[in-house]
Amino acid sequence: MNSLVSVDDLRAGELEWVVRRSWELAEGAQARPVLRGRRCALVFLEPSSRTVLSFSVAIEQLEGHWIRVDSATSSLSKQESLRDTVRVLEAQGFDCLIVRAPWVGTAAIMDRWFKGSVLNAGEGVGEHPSQAVQDASVLAYLRREEGRGLGVFDGLRVAIVGDLRHSRVARSVGRLWARLGAHIVGVAPPTWSLAPEAFGAQGVVDDLDEVIDEVDVVYMLRVQRERLSDRDTVVDQETFRRRFALTAQRLERLAPSVIVMHPGPITRGVEVDDAVVASPHMVDGVQYRFGVPTRVALLEYLCGEDT
């Protein structure tokens, strides 16, 4: 049994296997029943119905059982250590924990004590490795004609745009893809900026126009409306639209081959316009399509015995 806590844990060979396996699954291959007779706990200390859905479907395809543990049933707030939570789950016979939490480090801490597999399904503003792996699969899949597998990332120019500071997706996608050879640049207002090293980037600029003509992939982050306002400590919506949004006007400048990605859910009219969502550049549909196959492939890899 293995765990996936951080994208930094993944080796290129392992990733290659997961990516190619997710393609097969997306094209209709059968999942191997590696979880038959096994129990997985979806430890969701932060609500996310979409993630619960993709993991629970994946576990069912692998013939495993799952149960959801949420903040109400775990007692982290009631003088229980995370270690106690792990002890209880282990005693109840769980083999695998899928962890989503509002706090950075939750999966790493659980993995320190849990004997089975721990999969980080997104925590705080820290990491979201399954999303990064999924989007790597998607991108390589879209360019599979080149026959290079993950080699398509070598020299790939990627802009990650939006609230970098509060984004676990930016950290995981940026670092994983940079390790595969992509050149990452961040685009963010100064208050949402992040040290380039923190997300594998070579730099951060504060205007999308500075890089939009020179990238192969525009990865748009979700902007939470509550972070937009006209108070001076946050970013005002008008400035954000003018300099950071993928608007209908900017869409016209994109070279035909440019791919636009978004981890969802999209806030239309804020970070991307309807015209962008409707355009052939936007591949969020493929991203959704790879949600379950990527998780099946990851679980096959982490929990399977002979992979």
């Binding site: 229980e80 995370l82 106690d84 706090w103 801490i109 705080g124």
Partner: peptide, 12 residues
């Protein structure tokens, strides 16, 4: 500190 204040994520 008691264990439950240390065996938790940093923020807690």
């Amino acid at each position: 500190h008691p264990e439950w204040r240390k065996d938790v994520p940093l923020e807690l």
